[in-house]
Design a protein around this nucleic acid. Structure first.
Length: 431
RNA sequence: UCCUCGGUAGCUCAAUUGGCAGAGCGCUCGGCUGUUAACCGAACGGUUGUAGGUUCGAGUCCUACCCGAGGAGCCA
């Protein structure tokens, strides 16, 4: 007898199989019991009648939600079962039976309660499809970069200095001196790009901002890439190809999950048809002003403005050439217009916010020193980084993609706390 | 950090002008041979977030604090 997973069930119709999993729900009607059994790959309905097996019926009747079981039986096609296939159960081995009711119900519960029980919530409803899509997103990112000749590398999480100098950092005691949790791997990727040419990494980054919105976490995963000899335009082309590749991969691999989430895949495909529209910061300001937004040149976009840009283009849109004053020291200034930088943010449609921030980096020592001074950053802390401009500096560009936001957008879910197994938020460090 | 809303049974929520603490779901028990968040019946379930105050009387009004949610700013 073959041990199978739920997602393989359709291929084993008519066969006797073994399935290992958990009781997702139980329904009964007189002398017949229906067990919904989940195993992480899906949910399948099992059926037991009293007349066929009185003792098995008694066993099944005892089971409660999230009992762990190994069941044996015959798979049969049945249009009455969810998914069109059900397991006629012939034997049940109970591994463990909860003594208390499972806290997560199949009815609506409040976000606070669900987040308090996140370790259990992830077993139910749309959480499983979302986490399976998350897996596909990570793998798509790795595949994309691998196919494009990028080398996977790593940046340290424990660092001695800030990348951007502005964001609030988590500090920790490091043998008597102060260390910080990384808010980005970028500067280190610039170093490895000078060693390896084309590099990327996927890693967690940390920001101690007191943000409390559906788009923010204090710990989140970023995919960052850095490419030697790439300019601003090469950089944006790489970004849009990456985003389109991720979305198409998820549509191909996780159609069932997207279907469960009721996500319109035709719309997603349309959204990622290339190229993505590009507007300059100044054009975007004018557009927003024309449509009644209170914003003036030099202001950063707020959430409503980002949403308005997304609505206008109905696709991810690049906003490029931001005022240098708004952006960090490492971005290269536009040669013909030094008040602007060779940077672009990729704004998601449907109000999911900024997916990517990227730029061409300052590549001469003089200019980098000047920018550090202008932003009032301590040059000593960046000595190693300045070395990159002393020894064979080349034009180079890079970006960082917020993975949870990307997943939230692909899944069409409202809050990114569901796009990561265990979200870290300003007031949540547990579970 | 700021703004808004909220905290009543394990969960989701009611409770009229300040006047007996209520329902659905879950759990338990009973019924039902095709259920689809099953359904029907019964039982169980309460220091109304905490501390103080006003009042004959507070879930309800006042003060402070704690916790949660949504949003802003900042960001990816």
């Amino acid at each position: 007898m073959t041990t199978i997973t739920v997602e393989e069930a359709a291929r084993f119709i008519g066969e006797e199989i073994i399935l290992r999993g958990w009781v997702y729900n139980k329904r009964s009607s007189g002398k017949i019991i229906f067990l919904q059994i989940r195993d992480g790959t899906g949910v399948v309905q099992g059926v037991i009648t009293q007349s066929d097996s009185p003792s098995l019926f008694v066993t099944a009747d005892k089971l409660s939600r999230e009992s762990s079981v190994v069941v044996e039986g015959t798979l049969q096609a049945d249009s009455r079962a969810p998914g069109g296939c059900e397991l006629k159960i012939e034997q049940i081995q109970i591994i463990q039976q909860p003594s208390e009711p499972f806290p997560i119900e199949l009815k609506a519960q409040s976000p606070g309660f669900l987040m308090d029980h996140r370790h259990l919530w992830i077993r139910t409803g749309r959480q499983v499809p979302i986490l399976r899509i998350r897996d596909s997103v990570f793998r798509a990112i790795r595949d994309f970069f691998h196919e494009h000749g990028f080398i996977a590398t790593e940046a340290p999480i424990l660092t001695g200095a800030s990348v951007e100098g502005t964001t609030t950092l988590f500090d920790i005691d490091y043998f008597g001196t102060k260390a910080y949790l990384a808010q980005s791997g970028q500067l280190y990727l610039e170093a490895t790009a000078m060693a390896l040419g084309k590099v990327y990494w996927i890693g967690p980054v940390f920001r101690a901002e007191r943000s409390k919105t559906r788009k923010h976490l204090t710990e989140f995963w970023m995919a960052e890439a850095e490419t030697a000899f790439y300019d601003h335009n090469d950089n944006m082309r790489l970004q849009e190809e990456l985003v389109a590749y991720i979305v198409e991969t998820v549509i191909d691999e996780r159609g069932q999950e997207l279907d469960y989430l009721k996500r319109d895949t035709a719309l997603l495909r349309e959204q990622v048809s290339l190229p993505f529209p590009r507007v300059t910061y100044d054009e975007a300001i004018t557009m927003l002003q024309d449509s009644g937004h209170k914003i003036s040149s030099g202001d950063d976009f707020g959430a409503p403005q980002e949403a308005a840009l997304g609505d206008r283009f109905r696709k991810p849109v690049f906003v490029e050439y931001f005022p240098a004053s708004m952006k960090p020291f490492y971005m290269k200034h536009v040669p013909e217009k030094p008040s602007r930088v060779l940077a672009a943010d990729l704004i998601a449609p449907e109000g999911y916010g900024e997916l990517i921030g990227g730029s061409q980096r300052v590549d001469t020592l003089n200019e980098l020193e000047k920018q550090l001074d202008e932003k009032k950053l301590p040059r000593e802390a960046y000595e190693w980084y300045l070395d990159l401009r002393r020894y064979g500096s080349v034009p180079h560009s890079g970006f960082g993609l917020g993975i949870a936001r990307t997943i939230a957008w692909i899944c069409g879910i409202h809050h990114i706390r569901e796009a990561i197994p265990f979200a870290r938020q300003i007031n949540r460090l547990y579970p």
